[in-house]
Amino acid sequence: MEQIVEANIYLSGLGFKSGGLAAAHAIHNGLTLNEGCRSTLHGEKVAFATIVQLVLEKAPNEEIDQVIDFCKRVGLPVTLKDIGITSSETDKLMVVAEASCSQDSSMWNMPFEVQAVDVLEAILAADERGQ
């Protein structure tokens, strides 16, 4: 059992450094600045942010719906409310979006340029889709 735990720790670190993280984790990091979702788990924020990334990528509607349906089936969040953000005040969400696009974020691994306004629009669209 100890070797399994050590392997998971090692591989998660290796994956983090070599995995080409992009929008979903950058958005997660931005979400941590919103007090409403501070008690939401890392994976829960990343789940919602994955939907946001799909919206940013202009993924096919069927793909986005498939991910939302999966998240709902396994109990992962699909709306802002699900991650503890009860207000969709754009100024507060813009703080999240701007942090998501900071120089040290993984947003720069996206295959196209992403601006904070793009992230804000994608967050709102993902929230609407999740509802």
Score class of each variant (00 low, 15 high):
residue 3 Q to A: 14
residue 4 I to E: 12
residue 5 V to G: 06
residue 5 V to N: 11
residue 6 E to M: 12
residue 7 A to L: 15
residue 9 I to C: 10
residue 9 I to M: 11
residue 10 Y to H: 11
residue 11 L to V: 08
residue 11 L to P: 02
residue 11 L to E: 13
residue 12 S to N: 11
residue 12 S to K: 14
residue 13 G to E: 12
residue 13 G to Y: 07
residue 14 L to Y: 15
residue 14 L to C: 10
residue 15 G to V: 10
residue 15 G to F: 06
residue 16 F to H: 10
residue 16 F to P: 01
residue 16 F to L: 12
residue 17 K to S: 08
residue 17 K to E: 11
residue 18 S to D: 07
residue 22 A to S: 15
residue 23 A to Q: 05
residue 25 H to I: 02
residue 26 A to F: 03
residue 27 I to P: 05
residue 28 H to W: 04
residue 35 E to H: 13
residue 35 E to L: 15
residue 36 G to F: 07
residue 37 C to L: 08
residue 37 C to I: 09
residue 37 C to E: 09
residue 39 S to K: 15
residue 39 S to I: 08
residue 41 L to W: 07
residue 41 L to P: 10
residue 42 H to M: 13
residue 43 G to A: 11
residue 43 G to N: 13
residue 44 E to A: 11
residue 44 E to Q: 12
residue 44 E to L: 03
residue 45 K to A: 06
residue 46 V to P: 00
residue 46 V to W: 01
residue 46 V to S: 03
residue 46 V to D: 01
residue 49 A to Q: 02
residue 50 T to A: 03
residue 50 T to R: 00
residue 52 V to E: 06
residue 52 V to T: 12
residue 54 L to R: 03
residue 56 L to W: 02
residue 57 E to Q: 14
residue 59 A to P: 00
residue 59 A to D: 01
residue 59 A to I: 01
residue 60 P to E: 15
residue 62 E to C: 05
residue 62 E to K: 14
residue 62 E to N: 12
residue 64 I to E: 02
residue 65 D to W: 04
residue 67 V to W: 02
residue 67 V to Y: 05
residue 67 V to N: 04
residue 68 I to C: 00
residue 70 F to I: 11
residue 72 K to Q: 14
residue 73 R to W: 03
residue 75 G to S: 07
residue 75 G to N: 07
residue 76 L to N: 11
residue 77 P to R: 04
residue 79 T to F: 04
residue 79 T to G: 08
residue 82 D to F: 06
residue 82 D to N: 14
residue 83 I to C: 04
residue 83 I to E: 04
residue 84 G to S: 11
residue 84 G to I: 08
residue 87 S to V: 06
residue 87 S to E: 14
residue 87 S to A: 10
residue 89 E to M: 03
residue 89 E to T: 04
residue 89 E to G: 02
residue 89 E to S: 11
residue 90 T to I: 05
residue 91 D to R: 15
residue 92 K to A: 06
residue 93 L to D: 00
residue 94 M to A: 02
residue 96 V to E: 06
residue 96 V to Y: 02
residue 97 A to P: 05
residue 97 A to V: 11
residue 101 C to M: 06
residue 102 S to L: 06
residue 102 S to E: 14
residue 102 S to K: 14
residue 103 Q to D: 09
residue 104 D to E: 13
residue 104 D to K: 13
residue 104 D to N: 13
residue 104 D to W: 08
residue 106 S to H: 09
residue 106 S to V: 10
residue 109 N to K: 13
residue 109 N to P: 12
residue 112 F to Y: 14
residue 114 V to K: 00
residue 115 Q to G: 09
residue 115 Q to K: 15
residue 115 Q to S: 12
residue 116 A to F: 04
residue 117 V to A: 13
residue 118 D to A: 06
residue 120 L to T: 00
residue 121 E to P: 01
residue 123 I to F: 01
residue 124 L to R: 00
residue 125 A to K: 15
residue 127 D to F: 00
residue 128 E to T: 06
residue 129 R to M: 10
residue 129 R to A: 14
